[in-house]
């Protein structure tokens, strides 16, 4: 898995789509505020827990759908599965890479929210600590959801748009869980990290079972 993870991280930071999605995430808080009628009381730090922040998971999921789908479309899986017959390592590497991508997209979102807040003279009413806990909580949840997304993408392989719709559907089902409130920050952060760790161990096995049943070349 280490070799696969190094490869995926190398590829991740050289994928223009990641930076495009980070940019999209960065403009969400500001653009949503403008579209919904910018009102006084926009809480820049509070955007981390807002409804729109749940969309970060969908964006990360779509990115992962393309990231995994392009492995199949380009034929890179031929090299990978020739060397690594056990699919669990591949799934684990993709889960971690997907979570890293999701965290970067999340950070893009947070940065966008704060920059928008600074430029518009908005409030920073929520506490910095609460905000940071919410970021950590969402980062922990990224590992859990990345695992789910890897399973969906493993099912559809090179059919990227099927993966995209599957991932969006899954995300819609779990929206309430993604709305991390700022009320109980430490507890939420702890629970989310625990969920992420569980996902890190459980979902690679599930994804590996899916991939084992399917030929690598669809």
């Amino acid at each position: 898995m280490n070799a696969l993870l190094r490869r995926d991280i190398y590829r991740l930071f050289r994928t223009p789509l990641l930076y495009l999605f980070m940019l999209c995430a960065a403009v969400i808080p500001g653009s949503m505020s403008v579209m919904t009628g910018f009102e006084p009381g926009y809480d820049a730090w509070g955007q981390v827990s807002g409804l729109f922040s749940a969309g970060i998971f969908a964006i990360a999921g779509v990115f992962l759908a393309f990231f995994i789908g392009n492995d199949y479309k380009s034929g890179a899986v031929k090299n990978i599965f020739s060397l690594f017959p056990k699919k669990r390592g591949y799934a684990a590497a993709k889960l971690i890479t997907g979570a890293v991508a999701g965290i970067m997209i999340l950070l893009g979102y947070v940065l966008g929210a704060e920059v928008f807040g600074v430029f518009t003279g908005a409030d920073f009413t929520s506490g910095l600590f609460d905000m940071l806990c919410a970021v950590v909580a969402k980062a922990g949840m990224m590992f859990l959801f990345s695992g789910i997304y890897v399973c969906v993408a493993a099912l559809f392989r090179n059919k990227v748009w099927f993966s995209v719709f599957g991932i969006l559907a899954v995300t819609m089902l779990f929206i309430p869980a993604l709305l991390i409130t700022l009320g109980t920050p430490l507890i939420m952060a702890g629970l989310s990290i625990a969920a992420g760790v569980i996902g890190l161990f459980v979902f690679p096995g599930i994804a590996a079972l899916i991939m084992k049943r399917l030929d690598a070349l669809a």
Binding site: A3, R11, L83
Partner: peptide, 30 residues
């Protein structure tokens, strides 16, 4: 399996990455 080199059908490379980057990804795999 770690000692097999393969070229099955088309080369397994990402079109948007450079030749060097594709080679590096495989080198990292190995």
């Amino acid at each position: 399996r770690a000692q097999i080199g393969t070229l099955i059908e088309d080369p397994a490379c990402f079109p948007g990455s450079t030749v060097y980057q594709n080679m590096m990804m495989q080198a990292l795999n190995l």
